[in-house]
Design a protein around this nucleic acid. Structure first.
Lengths: 236, 236
DNA sequence: TGACATTTTATACGAACGTCCAAATAGTTT
DNA sequence: AAACTATTTGGACGTTCGTATAAAATGTCA
């Protein structure tokens, strides 16, 4: 194989007989483990310092590998960045879809507050959970959202679910314009991400200690967004 | 003079006779003009690409000067960044203080909606006005707010006014905790900045054209933030 | 065991980076 | 005119950047 190995799946393998046979080649297994170490290191570095301020050499050092290994596992710095960003989209989208479906199944739970909570909570939980890589990813997303140049990399991955939530809001406010709904959902997302990105500022303004996790802000955040959406769509 | 010339004012000049005599030295006047061109160029470049992605050579080219000139007018890239950030704080603070004072003088105008509007509108107006440098500055602030490493440069400059607004909110909600007030004000600021930073995302979600200016979002933005604050502080 | 595939090492390349500075230029003061 | 100051020029400095690659190491399979 020339470069950039270990594709996730062969989609439909030529011999349909070994559809889900697990790989046992130790070289590939070791390669995948190395690749994951590199991606984890890149995730932490990009989250801490941003794309441009991080060098491939720093990532290699953080991952405990040599420079060439990073180049072997991703063909460019840009592609490495893209891979890091895309890696965790699926779990988030699934969690948000599940919560939306549960809300729609329960009928009476379909409120603005419920929708906002369903959209925000998975991210808050991942950002507050025990996995430091998820925390790094959450900070990375919060960092790049205000940069169109980078956010374009994830927009197409997150927008489908956002549109599903917009449709749900539309059932509650059939007269609301698409533009207002899009604006309010964007404000909601920005509020969510700012909780992750700006906890230091909050504690600075309130002269208090930094609270434990983003999840601690769940109540006030959801109230803020839900109250804001209802006020706006109520018209004035 | 060794380096970094043209300090704004000698504070109290040794000869108190020429306190506000205007400089007529053509060398210094030309130097100040050059310095402003460099700062303007840096402002545009930093706003467009971020601190780390911009080189001093790019800034020099954008300003139409040679590389050494940038070094002559600011002793390091970091200091240039700081100067660009600090340059426009005063007008914004003044506008916000004036609006706050007007609200407090009129008594009955002191509402959550009025306070939010007073805090947000100056920035929206500068970000939507005819001066492209102010627009660049607005985008720069929106970009760095999610990066503690850079936001520290402006936090101390903006926080005093933010605290005055927090006090005003406290007169409306004496029982609210400092932490909640700080959180809600931070969410308000983040919403404000995301309007500048995320207009492309909004138009993408709503499948509509990009609206003209951030000021066009004033109504929905202020309603969102004011409604969110009231809902949160009303308790649930 | 020998041929082969995959991963890792170690190094090299040219380009671009931030910073610095001696000399040249433009303007002021004596 | 001469001495002096402030600005600008043009280029140099050592460093680090992203990327590429030959050779070594490691594991598979005939």
């Amino acid at each position: 194989m020339s470069r950039v190995p270990t594709q996730s799946k062969p989609a439909t393998s030529p011999e349909s007989d070994e559809t889900d046979r697990t790989v046992t080649d130790k070289r590939i297994l070791r390669g995948e483990a190395t690749r994951d170490r590199v991606l984890d290191a890149a995730e932490r570095c990009f989250a801490a310092d941003g794309f441009d301020a991080v060098s491939i050499r720093q990532i290699a050092a953080e991952a405990g590998v040599t420079l060439g290994v990073v180049g072997f596992h991703s063909k460019s710095k840009r592609e490495l960045f893209r891979t890091v960003l895309a890696r965790r989209v699926e779990p988030l989208n699934i969690a948000r879809r599940e919560r939306l479906a549960a809300l729609q199944a329960s009928g009476d739970g379909l409120t603005v507050h419920g929708l906002v909570d369903a959209y925000l909570t998975p991210y808050l939980e991942y950002a507050s959970g025990g996995d430091p890589q998820w925390r790094a990813y959450a900070e990375l997303i919060a960092r790049i959202v205000s940069d169109d140049r980078y956010y374009r990399e994830v927009r197409d991955l997150y927008d489908p679910v956002a549109l599903e939530y917009m449709d749900a809001f539309e059932t509650l406010y059939p007269n609301a314009s698409k533009k207002d709904l899009a604006t309010l959902l964007t404000l909601t997302v920005s509020s969510l991400l700012s909780i992750v990105a700006s906890r230091e500022r909050i504690s600075g303004l309130s002269h208090e200690e930094i609270p434990a996790t983003p999840l601690d802000y769940r109540a006030v955040l959801v109230d803020f967004c839900a109250g804001g959406i209802e006020r706006s769509l109520a018209g004035g």
